[in-house]
Design a protein around this nucleic acid. Structure first.
Length: 432
DNA sequence: TCTGGGGTCCTAGGACCC
DNA sequence: TCTGGGGTCCTAGGACCC
């Protein structure tokens, strides 16, 4: 048995911990430059707002229903996520974190009839200790656990934890799940499956195995097996290894025309990628740079250049230099650029590192010490980038800037709790 | 006027080899 | 006139996930 913990409306829930006045109100969290909706509360969902929709398209709904709009505060979300995961690690076996708001746990050691109570106690403890509401799905496979978690979220009767552990429950759950709501079946596939008359997860799960092989691919076969109770996703993935790629990319608030400005942006992203490589004690041997104009306009131009680096590195200066020279090969003057990104690939961890026979080892050692000094200084300040390489600008290029409140990591941002008179039994008094 | 960011895996097709 | 068979590796693009 496996369990999937999923934080409910995670970004919104993080905000609500520190701003209780936002409870039960429609709230949306926006992405970079306040462009798109990246998360919303149930109340906002009920008003028809969907993930990914640009803000300018829903201006009237937002003002008509007095929806609170927040700019994303990812450092807060990351910190809250690690609190959820730490709590979870203390409560359950085999924790495997799969994203900022999701993790799997191993339930093999828990007796079947104790599972509902055990699940509910996990949900309750996380809510109590961290303040974040979560849902737990328990089932023999990850795909079924996802479905169970959806039920746990949807129906209050489950008290946050839903268990699928026999064929009756399985059939019922699959029957109530639309084909597009199955994990691994996105928009394209669900269109295709519906065209074949498969509308629910049950329709799909009941197809004969031979048809799955003939008509579809290995991914769908795995989904099919998982829906039928055969665990085949996630076993080999739990082997630890370094990430395969690491990206930093941004959309600009305004169009950028010159290579100098793009150079600044690309250098900054490369520096950030380098810092993350060092944090994971990893090096990369290739870096790619991506630029694009506004994809919603005609005369769209985008291009990627990949550069191989002769010796694996995580040195900011080297990666910046490589990124800039890659940019020079794809930059075309005359376009208004709206987006750029840098990706480190062919990542190897510190152990597998092989140095070139001809490199200057003393110089390498010095550079390494310089980089770790830089990281150490920057890590001691909550505001990033106190010290940086001179050729890299510290200001963001053509971006909307926010100064988010860091409720959990900056002393001056810690919330005040006003003590009111104990006899104050009004609603406002209780909330304070 | 205004359209996010960061990942993974699979597949088809080309280049190359014997 | 007729143009094999089997394999690997790499890359770009598509699809999916949160």
């Amino acid at each position: 048995m496996t369990g999937l913990i999923d934080c409910n409306n995670f970004f919104v829930s993080c905000e609500r911990v520190f701003r209780p006045e936002l409870r039960d109100k429609p709230v949306i969290v926006l992405g970079n430059n306040d462009g798109c909706v990246v998360a919303m509360s149930n109340e906002a969902k009920a008003l028809g707002i969907t993930r990914g929709i640009p803000l300018f398209k829903i201006r009237d709904i937002v003002s008509r229903h007095n929806i609170t709009t927040l700019s994303g505060n990812h450092r807060l979300y990351k910190d809250m996520s690690s609190r959820v995961m730490m709590t979870l690690a203390s409560l359950a076996d085999g924790l495997e974190i799969s994203s900022i708001d999701e993790a799997y746990i191993n339930l093999d050691a828990v007796d079947d009839d104790e599972l509902p109570a055990y699940g509910q106690s996990i949900v309750k403890t996380i809510r109590k200790n961290v303040g974040i509401p979560v849902s737990l799905g328990m089932a023999p496979t990850r795909t079924l656990a996802k479905i169970a978690a959806r039920f746990a979220k949807k129906y209050p009767g489950y008290k946050g934890a839903c268990l699928i552990n026999n064929s009756d429950k399985m059939t019922k759950a699959l029957c109530l799940t639309g084909i597009g709501d199955v994990w691994g079946i996105g928009r394209r596939l669900s269109e295709r499956l519906k065209a074949h008359g498969l509308n629910t997860a049950l329709d799909f799960a009941q197809l004969p195995k031979e048809i799955i092989r003939d008509r579809y691919n290995i991914n769908l076969e795995r989904v099919w097996r998982e829906l039928n109770g055969e665990a085949c996703i996630g076993i080999e993935e739990s082997i630890d290894g370094p990430q395969k790629s690491l990206t930093c990319s941004r959309t600009f608030a305004t169009e950028v025309y010159t290579i100098d400005e793009l150079n600044d942006a690309v250098a900054q992203y490369a520096a950030y990628v380098a810092e993350r490589l060092r944090r994971h004690d990893c090096h990369c041997t290739a870096i790619s740079v991506y630029i694009a104009t506004n994809r919603f306009k005609e005369s769209y131009y985008s291009n990627i250049a990949q550069h191989r680096i002769p010796e694996a590195t995580n040195d900011t200066s080297i990666l910046c230099k490589e990124a800039k020279s890659a940019l020079a090969t794809i930059f075309r003057p005359g376009y208004g650029y709206k987006r750029a990104g840098v990706t480190a690939t062919q990542i190897i961890d510190g152990n597998g590192l092989q140095q070139s026979l001809f490199s200057d080892h003393d110089d390498l050692k010095k550079r390494k010490r310089l980089m770790s000094a830089l990281d150490k200084i920057n890590s001691e300040f909550t505001s990033h980038d106190k010290v940086h390489v001179a050729s890299i600008p510290s200001k963001s290029i053509a971006m909307k800037e926010h100064t988010p409140r860091l409720y959990t990591s900056r002393m001056s941002d810690i919330i005040d709790i006003k003590c009111t008179d104990r006899s104050d039994n009004t609603k406002a008094g209780k909330e304070n």
